[in-house]
Design a protein around this nucleic acid. Structure first.
Lengths: 226, 226
DNA sequence: GGCAGTCGTCAAGATCACGTCAAGAACCGC
DNA sequence: GCGGTTCTTGACGTGATCTTGACGACTGCC
């Protein structure tokens, strides 16, 4: 039985979601503030968290960070405002999806199904990918040229490359790359990214000045194109 | 069976819509004023609301807000005057579409079908949509032509396109687009919209001068037609 | 038919983001 | 301590992107 933790400070929303989710055979826990949410998450280990950003005791983004410190349980965020600032902040902090109030129960249920599906399918292996004449083997932690010679990457280069390769074809935002490689406080130091992307291209691309697999999306981020 | 709530103060319109919708196998409830509309919406949970803005007891926009406080049921607005400011306010308040009186029943039925289609698919993954020969993949943040070549969009172009594509078939007001893309203080700079909509059409439409998917609704806003 | 408002288009300068180079600081194995 | 590697940080030229203004075409209204 899938366990859902619903965090909201409005009793009528808690009530509505509890009724609807229980009717769909979810095991539902509710919390009215951030502190209770973190406590219940730790004790009950939910499979999904539905989190309202507007809580009385603490910022919703803080709750996300608190959860993400020790779990990667899927988090669906509810927010009263459609403003994209909140959305970006929540997603950057580690939320999985985002629903703007007012929302239909059907829509929320659909998103719950979507993230559970995604969580179930996560963890698939990406054994080896090709970049030009080089082969990147994530499990072996090695890069080789066509004739077997090894290409040495520094730890930071590996970290960056790994994130991109694990999201083939997908755009990865600069903020996310900086957050994952350098940490939360480095989210605007884009010169680090420029520096290391250039090094990766020099080591991996056939023609570093004309990258075909490690692509820049100006103003947004980078993409690994298989 | 799809439940429709029709709200209008003119008995002959109520009668005509009830007959026509029932003939199409919709389950029809009617209300003559805003208070009755809110009451019936709460008790009967309609799948669509058709709402006349000119009600005797309260402003139609207030009715929309009252509904949007707890549900995102599709709302189609009927308005007496074309080009009225009311319609923009209604869209900004959360209406999904509008029809100007006098209207043909066929047109209204077409809109009803459009918004129900949209509501059914809401919340599910929107992996890729087609615009002419191009495919827009929101999760990968990529646009490709039929032969696999990549179409490059700037951050602002993406932002604008994303809002439209996430509301397929729905009319999005200029104010909302400007607010979401450029921020709260840019709500009257419609020349930005004209500029970027033109760029999107050049990059996405098969015939940019005759757009078939990125449509202009004069005086109101823009619509993405799948 | 004139008029006001809106839309699509073009063009320009201002601004921003990127790739690159370079140099000092920190780290590590010996 | 020392040499080499890696990481951090700053600066700069170039090109892309954003912003802004202006103009003609079109539409609906008087």
């Amino acid at each position: 039985m899938t366990r859902v933790l619903v965090v909201d400070d409005e009793p009528q929303i808690l009530r509505a979601l509890r009724i609807n989710l229980r009717a769909r055979r979810y095991d539902v826990e509710v919390a009215g503030d951030g502190a209770a949410a973190l406590r219940l998450a730790a004790s009950h280990r939910p499979d999904i968290v539905v989190l309202d950003l507007g809580l009385p005791d603490m910022d919703g983004v803080q709750v996300i960070r608190g959860l993400r410190g020790w779990t990667n349980v899927p988090i669906i965020v509810l927010s009263g405002r459609a403003g994209s600032q909140d959305k970006v902040a929540a997603l950057d902090a580690g939320a999985d999806d985002y629903v703007t109030k007012p929302f239909g129960v059907d829509e929320l249920l659909a998103r719950v199904r979507a993230v559970t599906r995604r969580a179930a399918g996560a963890g698939e292996e990406v054994p080896a990918v090709e970049i030009g004449r080089r082969t990147v083997d994530l499990t072996a932690h090695a890069v080789r040229t066509a004739d077997g010679a090894e290409v040495r990457l520094t730890p930071t280069e590996w970290h960056l490359l790994e994130i991109l390769v694990r999201n083939p074809g997908r755009l990865v935002s600069q903020r996310q790359l900086l957050h994952d490689v350098w940490g939360p406080q480095y989210q605007s130091e884009t010169n680090y990214l420029r520096q290391y992307m250039a090094q990766l291209r020099r080591k991996l691309e056939d023609d570093p000045s004309r990258p075909r697999h490690l692509l820049t999306e100006p103003g947004m981020g980078y993409r690994f194109q298989p």
